[in-house]
Simulated assay, not measured.
Amino acid sequence: MNILPRKLKISWLIVHLLLIAYSITVVYPAILVIFNSFKSTQEIFSSPYGLPKSFSFINYVNAWNEANFGVYFKNSVFVTLVSVFLVLLVASLAAYVLARFKFKGSFVIFFVFLLGLMLPIRLAIIPLYILVRDLGLLDTYTGLILVYVASGLSFSIFILYTFFKSIPEEMVEAAKIEGANSFQIYYKIMLPLVRPALSTVAIFNFMSFWNDFFFPYILIKDEALYTVPVGITSFFGEYTTDWSLLFAGLALSIIPVLIVFFVMSKQFIEGLTAGAIK
C-alpha cells in the first residue's frame, strides 16, 4: 500500500532537484552579470565571481550617456513594442477569421501560416534582404518592424487559432442574437476570453524581438538606429574592452524582459496550462 506513494515522493523529489539545478544554471549568470556591473574592469579581472567592493552606479551612468546605450535602449523599446503590438493585432484577426469562419481555401491559408513554423525565416535572408532593399526600407525602423511581424505571425496564429477554436459556439450565437456584429464579437467577447493566449504570444515575441541580433545586424547599418544587441557590440574595442560598461549594458538589457514577464506572468502561466486541467 505504501510502495506507490513512496515512489511518487521519490519522483517528485527528483523532479524538484532537477528544477532547482536548472534554475541555478539560468539565474546564476544573470546574478553574475549584475554583480560585475558594479565593478571596475580591474576588479572584474581580479575578482570575477566575488561581490563588488561598493555598489556604485557610475558604470550605468557612463554606459547610458557616454557609450550611447540610452539610444540603443530607446530604439529597442520602440521597435519591440510596435512589433509586438502589430503581431498581436494581425495574428488575432487572422486566427479569429480562420477559426470561426468557414470559407473556401481557409485550411490552405492556415497551412501556409504553419509552414512558417517549419521553415525558419533566417533561411531566406538573401531574398528577404533584396526585398527590403528594393522597397527602400534598409536602415529604417519600418523595414525591421515588418520583418519581425512576419517572423512572429506563424507561431502567434497557431497559438491563438487553438484558443479561438475552443470557445463554445453558443456564446457567439448569443452575441449575434443581441445584435453584435462580427467585429464586436471579436473585440468584446473573443479577445477577453483568449487573454492568456495573447499574453503568451506577447511574452514569446517580446523576448524574441528584444534579444534578436541577426536581423538588426543585417538590415541596420546606421549606428543611430542600432538596437541593444547590436549596440552592445560597439563596447568591444579593437584592442581593449571596457568590461565594466559592457556588464552594465547587459544588466540594463535584462530589466525590460523581467518587467514584462513579472507583469504578465499570471496570464502567461494560464496560457501555457490552458486545457491541461478541466
Rank of each mutant, 00 (worst) to 15 (best):
F236T: 13
A174H: 07
I159P: 01
L193Q: 10
L250K: 11
T273G: 09
V108T: 10
L93P: 00
T80L: 06
S166V: 05
S40M: 04
S46G: 01
G237Q: 09
Q267S: 15
K104Q: 05
I10R: 03
S37E: 10
F215E: 01
E169I: 06
L32A: 15
V71H: 02
A150I: 05
L193N: 11
F55L: 15
R133L: 13
L146E: 04
P196H: 11
E170I: 12
T227V: 13
F236K: 14
S166P: 00
N2W: 11
A274F: 08
K188I: 00
L81W: 00
F73H: 09
S54A: 13
S23W: 04
R100Y: 02
Y28W: 11
F247P: 01
V26G: 01
S37G: 15
P168R: 09
R195A: 13
Y72G: 10
G152C: 05
L246D: 02
L137H: 07
L258K: 01
S208N: 12
F101V: 05
K278R: 14
A174T: 13
G275R: 10
E170M: 04
V230S: 02
V79L: 12
Y60H: 09
P192S: 11
M190T: 06
A150C: 03
P29E: 07
A248G: 14
E223G: 03
Y226K: 11
Y141D: 12
P192A: 10
A30F: 08
I44R: 10
T142N: 12
F247I: 05
A150F: 01
A174Y: 10
A150Y: 04
N75Q: 09
L117Q: 10
H16D: 08
F55T: 13
S253C: 07
R100L: 08
A202W: 00
F215M: 13
I34W: 02
I130N: 11
L252Y: 07
P216S: 06
R195D: 05
G271I: 12
V33M: 15
L117W: 00
G249P: 05
P5D: 10
S182H: 03
V71R: 15
F73C: 08
K39H: 06
P52T: 07
N2C: 00
K102Y: 10
L144R: 05
K53V: 09
F78I: 15
